[in-house]
C-alpha cells in the first residue's frame, strides 16, 4: 500500500466525525439536529432480504423495510415520535450505536462513498436488552456548510426481529 497522505487523514477524520455525530444525535434523541445532517433530496434505504443471500435492490418492485426517496420520510418519522402518541415509541427504548470499520471506498473530496459496520444495543423495560447490527453504505456530499448525507443504505442482518425498528435503532 502507498503512503498515507495528510489529505487522506483529514478526509477520513471528517467522514468519521459526521457518521459518529449521526449516531450520537440519534442515541440522544436530538432529532432536529439529526435531520440537519441530511440533504433535502437524501435517499434512505433499508431493504428486506429476498432469500438467505440476496437483498432487495429495487424499492419500487421489491420489499424494503424502509425506503424514503427524500428527506421528507425522515421528517415523518420524527413527527410521529414527537406526537408522543405512538404506543411503541413512548416510552422510547434506550439505545447506543457503535460504529466501526469506517472505510472510504471511492469518490472525491466533494462526493464520498463510505461503508462501515454498526451495532445497536437497545434496552426496553418490557423486552430487556437486544442487539442487532449490519452495515451502512453512505454517500456524503460537500455543500456550503460542510459534508452532508446524500444517501444512507442500511444492510440489516436479521430477516426476523422481535422489536420494532425505527430510525433511532437501526
Amino acid at each position: 500500500m502507498s503512503l498515507v497522505t495528510d489529505a487522506e487523514i483529514r478526509l477520513q477524520y471528517e467522514v468519521e466525525r459526521l457518521i459518529f455525530r449521526e449516531a450520537y444525535l440519534l442515541d440522544n434523541r436530538m432529532f432536529d439536529d439529526w435531520l440537519g445532517l441530511y440533504l433535502e433530496d437524501a435517499e434512505y434505504l433499508m431493504p428486506a432480504w429476498i432469500n438467505e443471500t440476496t437483498l432487495a435492490t429495487d424499492p419500487n418492485a421489491e420489499l424494503f423495510l424502509i425506503y424514503f426517496p427524500t428527506k421528507a420520510g425522515l421528517d415523518d418519522r420524527v413527527y410521529r415520535i414527537n406526537t408522543r402518541d405512538s404506543y411503541a415509541s413512548a416510552p422510547m427504548p434506550r439505545s447506543a450505536h457503535v460504529i466501526g470499520n469506517v472505510l472510504i471506498l471511492g469518490g472525491d473530496q466533494d462526493r464520498i462513498e463510505v461503508t462501515c459496520s454498526w451495532t445497536v444495543h437497545q434496552y426496553a423495560d418490557r423486552k430487556g436488552p437486544r442487539s442487532h447490527g449490519g452495515r451502512y453504505d453512505y454517500v456524503l456530499e460537500r455543500g456550503t456548510d460542510g459534508l452532508k448525507i446524500a444517501k444512507k443504505h442500511i444492510t440489516f442482518l436479521n430477516d426476523r426481529v422481535d422489536i420494532p425498528l425505527d430510525v433511532y435503532n437501526v
Partner: peptide, 19 residues
C-alpha cells in the same frame, strides 16, 4: 409498496404500535 411499508411492517408507522 409505499403504503405497504407505511402501515404493514414492524419498521413502519403503525405495526410497531400494534406489537
Amino acid at each position: 409498496l409505499n403504503k405497504f411499508r407505511d402501515f404493514f411492517l414492524t419498521s413502519g408507522l403503525a405495526t410497531p404500535d400494534d406489537s
